[in-house]
Design a protein around this nucleic acid. Sequence first.
RNA 1: UACCCCGUGGUGUAAUGGUAACACUACUGAUUUUGGUUCAGUCAUUCAAGGUUCGAGUCCUUGCGGGGUAGCCA
Length: 562
Amino acid sequence: MSETPPKRESKNFVEQSIDADLQSGRFQSVNTRFPPEPNGYLHIGHAKSICLNFGLAKTYNGTCNLRFDDTNPVKEETEYVDAIMKDIKWLGFEWDSLHYASDYFEDLYQWAEQLIQSGDAYVCDLSAEEMREYRGSLTESGRNSPDRDRSPEENLDLFRRMRAGEFPDGSRSLRAKIDMASPNINFRDPVMYRILRASHHRTGDTWCIYPTYDWTHGQSDSLENISFSICTLEFENHRPLYDWFCQKLGIHHPRQIEFAKLKLSSLVVGKRFMLRLVKEGHVSGWDDPRMPTLSGYRRRGYTPESIRNFCSDVGVAKFNSTIDMVRLENSVREHLNKIAPRRMAVLDPVKLTITNWPEGQVEIMEAVNNPEDPEIGKREIPFSGNLLIERGDFREEAPRKFFRLKKGGAVRLRAGYIVDCYDVIKDEDGKVTEILCTYDPETRSGADKSGRKVKGTIHWVSANHAKEMTVRLYDRLFTVEDPGSTEEGKTYLDYLNPNSLTTVTAYAEPSLQSHEIGDRIQLERIGYFVLDPDSQAESIVLNRIVPLRDTWGKMEAKGKTV
RNA sequence: UACCCCGUGGUGUAAUGGUAACACUACUGAUUUUGGUUCAGUCAUUCAAGGUUCGAGUCCUUGCGGGGUAGCCA
């Protein structure tokens, strides 16, 4: 009998906290929620939170709700609600139940009256500016509001009249009565309600007072019987307040746990940053394939699996780290390598003519769809004497380590024959317009009787059979690592990459014609591509998802080719 | 200069007081009809200084460094 060694899987600090609470009996189950404010589109940073919350529910056999934190009507729209739900589903998650903080407005109101009656909240007549003055600063304590000692009766009366609409916007607020000298500024009598006449995307004009985040979040969690309320680090200082409200109210008390949000190199994810890119036309919309939004990645061709893998890959901790973009791209390549059928297309063509090829003859070659997955079979590609190859795959004079085609050299045409180049034709500017080769009939792919070995293999397409298609080559939007923090007098717009999108016409093997929108393929030796929704029957548009790793390009850039 | 949080290779994450692990990057090399993939190898004594301990990345103290917080935003 072999003993299985005790296998300890490593857990992140959130899971460790959960384990401890489950063990101690503080909670019996794991109930989480993902609580976006519907004021914009979800981005890659949200993906981390989504994967965390839904993932925890799954691993602990618990539940995860979707709750829209819609307490600020001036910023929120139904359009965003719909987009958010679509993105979460696309990522591959299903919520156990759907809620809106606005569903709890009446509960919240009743609880507010309760705190007023217990003397823990009061109506304050200070204006916003006055309140700021009274609050003190980071180093000085605040002063009590002149209205702080109003009686519960008077407060109740005023609060009811606030709700009834008797006072103008901003003229009064309801505040928790805590401690104006607290070193935690969130304890300096935080606002619970503001008077705000704005139409809410769900409750319309029913309310003219709206609860703030602090007064809403914990109680919403409580009502949904959430056990672990997971949020990002900037809410750390709010946790004491979260706890204070639950305790004062004597209600089910979830545990708030904070983690570091995802920060990726060379992109900006802030709402106003992204909004400006869209509004000023630097990108085509929220789903522009260069955008870090989930809808952008979807259109770009990223798979939900690869984003999920990426999120679990980067882990969860409290350290503010920056993840290199290549991690995400790597995760995409890793998945696509396994699932994407291979095809050939030439993006920057030059003619290659096989002068010993029988005039007018066409041969059908067979090529595997994906060497990683023999299950998905083979495809047929027409081969002829008039080919197109990549201009970059030919050099008249080439360094020693250039394994592609050179004058006087030979190369294998993938899934075809070995050809020998004996001459080139140039135009008056000296630019090569045609490469003249002979082929070796003994070297047919899969039936090579020659025993010949060549160093390089290149892709090609038969000129008369090739299908023209539009290819959009995407690169990163910004040229710097951290577009968010820029030097004096510059904004992130000064670091926009002028080459973030280039469009070229490609010549592709005929089988590419039979793909559908959303299909992902690998163009051999180039990269992974997805059929864009802009595609028409006869005019296909491909988006480059991510290029293949390019060891040669790297060597060349470093001058290591000799 | 108040309070809170954080400091482990180039980048991240782990090590639950017992002798630094995993992934990515980078660099070597092998295989390869994609310079792709795959495979093998190389790259840290844990911010610093004290202390507790038989033993400290883990606990304590101080310092240094980074982040957050002064919306009637979330």
